[in-house]
Amino acid sequence: MTDEPASIEVDQYLPHPPGKVWRALTDPARLATWLMPSDFAPVVGHRFTFRTEPRPGFDGIVHCRVLDLEPERLLRWSWCNGALDSTVTWTLAAEGHGTRLFLRHDGFDPGDPWQQQAMRIMGGGWRSHIMRALEAELNAG
């Protein structure tokens, strides 16, 4: 087994132009509709907070800062909750008549082994290779 990059990656094709996708990502009212309410502003360095209903293991508050922004191309913000100090990067790529939106959630404190391992697992290395096999085995048993 090898150690995998510490990230979650998800992508989706959206049948809408990059400009419209960008608007959904950067207009706070729109962002609140599909993600979470926040005081986001599309300005590098701006600090903002997502707030949602707490649930077990999550207090419902995510502290963020805009780290990078290239209109209709890239948006990166920090994502801090509890011990988790991470980075969320949205990348937009025109594809056909729409947009492919990539999400990458990564970054962690290398001094925190628990978090490092947790993120490594979140990146899918452990879970994809071991957990699925284990789960299948357990489900069959």
Binding site: V10, K20, A24, R30, W34, L35
Partner: peptide
């Protein structure tokens, strides 16, 4: 991971 997949799906619906 499920959270982000759901949010992506919510975004698609929203758009």
């Amino acid at each position: 991971e499920q959270f982000w997949r759901e949010k992506m799906s919510d975004l698609a619906t929203f758009l």
